[in-house]
């Protein structure tokens, strides 16, 4: 079947999609957007987190056909999505992404794309999250390398910078 939907602001068409394919497979294997990761394909790890019509969801659990006509944001478009939201000029690396770099929250990085999408949504929804809020919002994103401490640091840092954007160099 053919599936047509918007990804990171661009309209995409995928042909010959097998009906059992997930949105994740279509993004990764048909649209050349492998940033969303395939760690579990059962909704347990969050590494494929994308925004589907604004909601953070696991792309592995969305049937490709369900994405028809919908609007998807992936990690590849996250910085642009943030800029559009804030009405600022697009940057290569968004606030949350930069904070992950600065806090040393990236090791193998396989969980990172899902985490930055989820954390960006948290800060959009709750600009001053408590530690417990951060933990709850990210409880669907498994990381096997870091022990999460530096991920918490990164989200705190990003929230602080988002609240005071002029301080970001």
């Amino acid at each position: 079947m053919r599936v047509t939907f918007t990804v990171n602001g661009r309209r995409h068409e995928a042909d010959d999609v097998w009906e059992g394919e997930s949105l994740l497979y279509v993004l990764r294997e048909r649209l050349g957007l492998p940033g969303s990761k395939n760690a579990c394909e059962q909704g347990e790890c969050g590494s494929c987190t994308v925004r589907l019509d604004g909601e953070p969801v696991c792309a592995c659990l969305v049937a490709a056909g369900q994405a028809e006509g919908r609007d998807v944001v992936t990690v590849e478009g996250l910085a642009g999505y943030e800029a559009a939201r804030a009405g600022t000029a697009p940057r290569e690396v968004g606030t949350v992404q930069q904070a992950f770099l600065d806090a040393g929250a990236v090791q193998c990085g396989f969980c990172t794309p899902g985490l930055v999408v989820a954390a960006d949504e948290l800060i959009e929804r709750n600009p001053a999250p408590s530690d417990a809020d951060i933990r709850e919002a990210l409880s669907g994103n498994l990381c096997r390398c870091t022990g999460y401490e530096k991920i918490l640091d990164a989200v705190r840092l990003a929230a602080g910078r988002a609240a005071a954007p002029e301080e970001v160099s």
Binding site: E55, V57, A137, G140
Partner: peptide, 9 residues
């Protein structure tokens, strides 16, 4: 239920 992502769906 599950995680925030799961609860959204």
């Amino acid at each position: 239920v599950g995680s925030p992502q799961i609860r959204n769906r």
